[in-house]
Nucleic acid binder design. Structure first.
Lengths: 315, 315
DNA sequence: TATAATAGTGACATAACATGTCACTGTTAA
DNA sequence: TTAACAGTGACATGTTATGTCACTATTATA
């Protein structure tokens, strides 16, 4: 095996093993200890964060910030990565600000001339208008990591009215209308709750509480599971062709858009009682393009909303 | 200089030069012609798309799809790239589907063990709820490229009512509410127009028309420039604290949110006459959380809208 | 049509680099 | 005290990279 190939494979191997000894690698790669020592020194110089301890139970360790073997991207791929990094960061706070900068730097070092200009110009030529105010969400990364590793965490949560401390186990994170939310199992209320991530002021891993098994629940299926014991309504809303167009840009997992051949359509599905207010306001904003047929409770609530509007505009 | 370093620099050099001869490179890198030939063969094997022609004015050329020198990313950077690629594609159609697949493949080949699992799990743990229907927008990439290179293109545009063919020069592309839009200078109407990208059915570069100088206009400043000659209204809308919260997730360049210490605030700015209808519906959807004070035309239009609602809900 | 500019190959010597071996130093847990 | 580990330096040897040279082949253009 050539040296270059051996080094690449060595990066992957040490990343996988985390701890290893020189003799061990010498055995695996069928080269001498001396060669492995020289290779490890080269990896260090390349940026692999290695650390060694002598003595029994000593050996090498790879620290955090492990690096991958070098990858050659095409210019189009580089442009795609820049595009999505730039675009998504415009759209919403993402938990990777430091990484964005370092990725940018690495690419810039390897780009010359026209492609560099292309990428520079892209910044002025792509925009995301529905952007929320760019407030940094400090604990988003920790929440995502807790969701991935299924850790229990202790958070301090500040809702509009009160502060509280809770132990939760995140299911995932999702973005909606420019905000990040974190649906989780809450050990305090012993039920599932959705937390708005910018209101989570402190996150600490809590290894005293045993995580519950959420492996079957993730973001795609949580609605059907979590709504099981709640009071729900069946909904039916007729949409004009324009209404259909508009509804297409919304997608709630619980509401389904059914199109007809003539362009009109209707919304069906179920929603929980506590969302009645939201649904009333939502379909009211469609004006003539939406007509609620079911449920009666939603129609009633909508009428009340119109009455409130009436008063405000003194007709 | 070591061979590895020379090869990396050679990738960058040939990418920059596009056309070159063997003797030229031999001179620049201070090695023999024979070595350069061997190096170029290696680059070819590494995937650099080289093509050569013999004879006077012959030489080497790099074809499209140029590749960059290999870059070593950290695992965190790889995770960030995966996150944004995955997230943005959930949110909206992006003109980089092929690149997404090839980037994924390249990373997967270089990932092992835990980090691979982390990335696999991320897919189930991150979601974007405001996602538009995932309709592929066929010409988005060409529009972006035309905007970057300031090309004039001929498009076929299908609005709700009619089809037309136009020559336009794109300023950029932007995403709003799950749709892509392309503000451009239109040579047919001799004015700036915004086109919805999914209604653009054909794109061809038109090199017969000379591009106009749009270099001073880009997405960030186009509103102030383009609205210069249009009839506009000054707006003032009072918002409650809840209204402020809600308005934060909107950001139109022309409307500014002014916050007060008590949490309430107001919206100020200007909008064009033709947007009156949209503004009326928009602030109506805020119900009690928004109160329009200016302009009179907008208040009037809003009252008409409420009247229409009245009829629909038969109060 | 001759010429010069270009790519490309093969063979060989030599230079540079990579590897293995070995004898050694140093640290530390058990 | 011992064994398990990292680490170094020197040197011989094996492998790869490079240069040189003599060659072939193609093609634009003077």
């Amino acid at each position: 095996m050539s040296k270059a190939k051996r080094l690449n494979e060595m990066i992957m191997m040490v990343n996988r093993k985390r701890r290893f000894t020189v003799a061990e690698l010498a055995q695996e790669f069928q080269v001498s200890r001396r060669t492995i020592l020289r290779d490890l020194q080269e990896l260090s110089e390349m940026g692999v964060p290695l650390y060694s301890e002598v003595g029994p139970h000593g050996g090498y360790q790879v620290l955090k910030e492990r690096i991958l073997p070098p990858i050659a991207f095409s210019e189009d791929e580089a442009a795609a990565i820049f595009f999505v990094l730039h675009a998504l960061r415009q759209y919403i706070s993402v938990p990777f600000d430091a990484e964005y900068e370092s990725i940018k730097k690495k690419f810039y070092l390897n780009l010359t001339g026209s492609i560099r200009d292309t990428i520079d110009h892209m910044k002025d030529r792509v925009d995301f208008m529905t952007t929320a105010q760019q407030e940094v969400i400090p604990h988003l990364k920790e929440l995502l990591e807790a969701a991935i590793h299924q850790d229990v965490i202790t958070i301090q949560y500040e809702s509009k009215t009160k502060k509280s401390e809770r132990n939760i186990q995140p299911i995932g994170i999702y973005a909606q209308e420019g905000n990040w939310y974190c649906p989780s199992y809450c050990f305090v209320s012993q039920d599932y709750r959705v937390f708005r991530c910018d209101r989570i002021k402190r996150v600490e891993i809590n290894d005293k509480i045993e995580p519950i098994d959420l492996s079957h629940i993730h973001l795609k299926n949580r609605f059907s599971i979590l709504n099981e014991n709640k009071e729900t309504y069946d909904i039916h809303v007729e949409l004009t062709a324009r209404g259909v167009e508009r509804f297409k840009s919304v997608s709630w997992p619980v509401l389904v858009l059914n199109k007809r051949d003539d362009g009109t359509g209707y919304v069906s599905g179920t929603f929980t009682k506590q969302d009645t207010d939201f649904m009333a306001e939502f379909f009211l904003s469609y004006h003539k393009e939406a007509r609620i047929l079911k449920p009666e409770e939603l129609i009633q609530r909508t009428k009340e909303k119109v009455n409130e509007l009436l008063k405000q505009y003194e007709l």
